[in-house]
Amino acid sequence: MIVSNATDKTVKKLLINGQSHDVVIRSADLLLDTLRSQLGLTGAKPGCGNGDCGACAVVVDGKPMHSCLSLTIEAVGKSITTIEGLQDSPIQKAFIENWAIQCGYCTPGFIMNCYALSETYPDADDETIEEWMQSNLCRCTGYQEIKEAVKTILQIKKDQRPAQ
């Protein structure tokens, strides 16, 4: 039943962006640190370290999670998507086309959250968008453009649905 002990580092498999990776971890390692320092997946950004800013957000089994508030060991056996897994995706294009980026530091976290929202609630209303987006902070305050990007991606998904 022990999954990982205090004295030794253990090798675990993580499923990230559809690929299996071996990582060598302590029980106390945080998912954010493992992604960035062991796997070079530096898209998830360290910010507040408390789950307040959302810059570190990744998607775990379809749900947005603060990777700074997750132990790596908790993510074993789950499917993790990081910003690197969304290259050339419609959500990335929607952010570019709506100028929803200023300094860019918060952008990966926002995109991951918007991606999970659009996958979970393709018909999300303004209230739902607002509720989800409250999890991320943009200190450049580009919220309006980000909201437009979310609406763009929801519209694209709507347009792609087969007519009933």
């Binding site: 039943m1 022990i2 999954v3 990982s4 002990n5 205090a6 004295t7 302590r26 029980s27 106390a28 390692d29 945080l30 640190d33 132990l71 060991i73």
Partner: peptide
């Protein structure tokens, strides 16, 4: 980073 080590258990009952 958490600055100390611990054993991690995941019981099923």
């Amino acid at each position: 980073m958490i600055p100390f080590n611990f054993d991690y258990y995941k019981p099923s009952t």
